[in-house]
Write a protein that binds this DNA or RNA. Structure first.
Lengths: 349, 349
DNA sequence: ACTTAGCACTCGAGAAAGCTGAGTGCCAAT
DNA sequence: ATTGGCACTCAGCTTTCTCGAGTGCTAAGT
């Protein structure tokens, strides 16, 4: 955090080299190993000097005195910033992604498969949230169906194709005719309204007509009160795939357990993503060290981006993985899928 | 497997005692430990004799020569069979279950919460499948909405409240009027038909009218061909919760990884459950040793039951856990939830 | 005939001790 | 500035040792 100290060219090169070899080997990297595998051959001793400086500046740490150096979160942040972002996705990955996602029938399926593909490519945990809030959507169609007594099935379709159904428990029994009338009324009068403004308007109209007793309005009021038109949690669906990958990474059992159960609590995942991702910006965001939001997630990285169609944010695509991760690869994959998402839904919605 | 050898009363008692202490301690149980904690005090030596017999009969195994005995799958099967099944759920669990499930809005939510609760109670993995196949359901209502060109959103509602939506890609562009006509036609002519017989009937009618060119029928044929009325995978939803519990149980990392990724492949979970559970019988089924279906699942137990409403099977409720598991507790919980499920949906559907 | 005490034997788990080698820091030389 | 050299550190592996829970068997007791 705070002020990342400035760094010369040589330092920078060595630091990247360290980060890269640590990512690939997983073991603390020593001056010797570096000296051998480095293009411009410097001696181990020189490298040691630089490493000492980098350690002072907070980029490296020693697990114990006589071990190699390990990159700190700060080092990863530096490393990521320094990436050019010009990498292309490998053809293999590209066809893997295309093959998986192309045939998705709907948003949910797209998201689920995305999680899966991301987990495969990144060797981390693929996480997607489809948070399509109904709020800004236009109502297109409602349909009510009487189930048992006092139970009504409400189906709401928005203009952009979001379908939400729920079973309402009414206070009293509404006959089928009333339900049909209510649906017809809403479909005629409110088609095209945004879901949000719609609630106020309904409340208003119900208010107005209250004086004279109107069965239709009473029905609508009741349906409305039971949440017939609520679309909240509609798309708040979370897909987490690839948890198995954590087993390889995480050594500590207790932590592993915590991680898994955290990932199972959908709400916390949503919180996590929205804490870091719900910005306006388009680029893929890389957050190294999630410990300030989730205590157990130190040593973990979030690589994600909002999933948008045009200007509207429909959810998030992300990978949660160990700091030791192929950043460039994962970043390009995430960004590729984000573009694909936009294109795909633009043409299909 | 094969013929479970017969067993006298004393043997039986000792075997249960062994199974129980092994379940609670997790360590191979020796004759000494047993002798101490056994009500009718037999000496260690006598117990040793019995244990030797039990070992010969295939109920016990020794991890190595000078260790205690560990129950085999056969022993667990015996143990389970011998349980009275009269145990009552503890009030704490009962209120936990009630509290979690009562407020479920729909089938999906009920299933998801059930998985969660089961994982909490059993310390295993809670698994539920809602496999409501549309096939035997009666069609109640369809609705088509034109999205982009050549894209149509189809929403199908069945009589028992299952809602299925999917985006169809048409070969040619259908105008809104045609879509509405098609929906109206289907709603008028096919309301109340079972989804399965419906497909044949539509095919038949389309065939009949083929001679004269009928736009309506052409539209319907196309919609149908694109799967507008398919309800397959509709309720084929799998909920797996409590995977974190496996971390405690499973020592071997590689196996743990396999387990987790198996559980993530929904299809395999469905296969597993349907292999053992889709019987007509009502009771909770306990399957010890799943290795014949899933190689990695030796040492694991499936405790589950079909979830039925009246006579119709709506899915499955199950726990997958280590052989070392509180059987009685879990069995009663599963069966309790199964009853709850029946009652709950009987009154609400 | 069943039960029990005693005894010799086995063998995994855990502690203690020793060794190894990758790695560091610093100094003196280039 | 860079490099070679040297003394020092220390995690982790291997080896060895001890300990104790457990077994099987035999002989004695009921």
């Amino acid at each position: 955090m705070s002020t990342p100290p400035k760094i010369g060219k040589r330092e920078s090169e060595i630091l990247t080299a360290i980060v890269e070899t640590y990512i690939s080997t997983g073991e603390p990297v020593g001056s010797r190993t570096l000296a051998r595998s480095n293009r411009e051959s410097l001696s181990a001793a020189s490298i040691r000097n630089v490493m000492a400086d980098l350690a002072d500046a907070g980029f490296l740490e020693q697990p114990h005195t006589s071990a190699g150096r390990v990159p700190t979160a700060q080092a990863y942040r530096f490393y990521v910033k320094q990436l050019t972002g010009e990498a292309r996705l490998s053809p293999a990955d590209e066809s893997l992604i295309q093959g998986s996602l192309q045939s998705s029938q709907d948003l949910q399926e797209f998201m689920e498969r995305t999680s899966h593909v991301l987990s495969l490519i990144s060797h981390g945990v693929g996480v997607t949230v489809s948070s399509a809030r109904g709020g800004r959507n236009a109502l297109e169609h409602v349909y009510f169906q009487r189930m048992a007594d006092k139970k009504v099935l409400a189906v709401v379709v928005t203009r952009n194709g979001l379908v939400r159904d729920r079973v309402l428990r009414m206070n009293c029994d509404l006959p089928i005719a009333d339900l049909e009338a209510a649906a017809a009324y809403i479909n005629q009068n409110f088609r095209g309204w945004e879901m949000e403004s719609l609630r106020n308007e309904i409340a208003k109209r119900v208010q107005q007509e209250r004086s004279e007793y109107d069965r239709l309005m009473a029905s609508i009021e009741q349906l409305y009160a039971q949440g017939a038109l609520a679309t909240e949690g509609a798309g708040q669906t979370v897909y987490v795939e690839g948890a198995a990958n954590l087993v390889i990474t995480e050594q500590d059992k207790e932590r592993l357990r915590h991680l898994l159960s955290t990932l199972e609590e959908k709400q916390r995942v949503v919180d996590l993503l929205s804490a870091y991702l719900d910005t306006r910006q388009e680029a893929v965001r890389v957050v190294v060290g999630l410990e300030d939001t989730m205590p157990h997630l130190n040593n973990f990285v979030l690589i994600g981006t909002p999933a948008r169609v045009g200007d509207e944010v429909m959810g998030s695509l992300a990978v949660i993985g160990p700091t030791r991760m192929d950043y460039e690869h994962t970043i390009t994959a995430v960004s590729y899928i984000a573009r694909l998402f936009d294109r795909y839904w633009n043409e299909s919605t």
